[in-house]
């Protein structure tokens, strides 16, 4: 019984990264879209909310920055060597800042009336958020592996 419980705990620990990915996808992307749909239904509007329109001002860049912070936090709490923690944190921070910069630039352009292209803001923020998300996901997988090795 105890061995089975240990086995389940070990398998659960191996797939924590999957929970991490699901949490961010659900709470960061799906829930805002769902809230928009709920608002549309409540107000009887004929708006057809799409992800592209919801995040057309580069908001995904901000999501990317938050993701990077979460990844850095997990990395700093890990038992990896300081070199690895520092390197991963810097890399995530650079990518996160670049993603956040898309949102900031988009805001500045709209506020000052400078030429603004929503298509470009959407494309840039989506690509950079995808990079941060994929990097943070791989880091979570690597940290799960490292945690298992450290426990043994």
């Amino acid at each position: 019984m105890g061995t089975a419980a240990n086995l389940i705990a070990l398998h659960w620990a191996s797939f924590q990264w999957l929970l991490w990915i699901s949490l961010y996808l659900i709470l960061g992307i799906f829930v805002p879209w769902l809230i928009t749909r709920a608002w549309v239904q409540q107000h009887g509007s004929d708006l057809q909310p799409r992800l592209k329109e919801l995040f057309q001002h580069g908001e995904l860049g901000l999501v990317g920055l938050v993701l990077a912070i979460s990844g850095i936090w997990d990395l700093l709490r890990s038992q990896c060597m300081p070199h690895t923690r520092a390197l991963g944190s810097i890399l995530l921070a650079v990518s996160g800042i670049m993603a956040g910069a898309v949102w900031i630039e988009s805001y500045c352009r709209r506020s000052t009336g400078t030429r603004f292209n929503p298509e470009r803001a959407w494309r840039d923020s989506r690509s950079l958020a995808f990079l941060v998300f994929s990097m943070a996901a791989v880091i979570e997988i690597l940290l799960d592996r490292f945690a298992k090795v450290a426990v043994q």
Binding site: D124, L131, V138
Partner: peptide, 22 residues
């Protein structure tokens, strides 16, 4: 060069690396 192009390429490398690890 807009950062979107290398970002997507690096993200695909990340996904491939992650899938190989899994």
């Amino acid at each position: 060069v807009r950062l979107a192009d290398p970002a997507v390429a690096a993200a695909y490398i990340s996904v491939a690396f992650g899938l190989l690890l899994v």
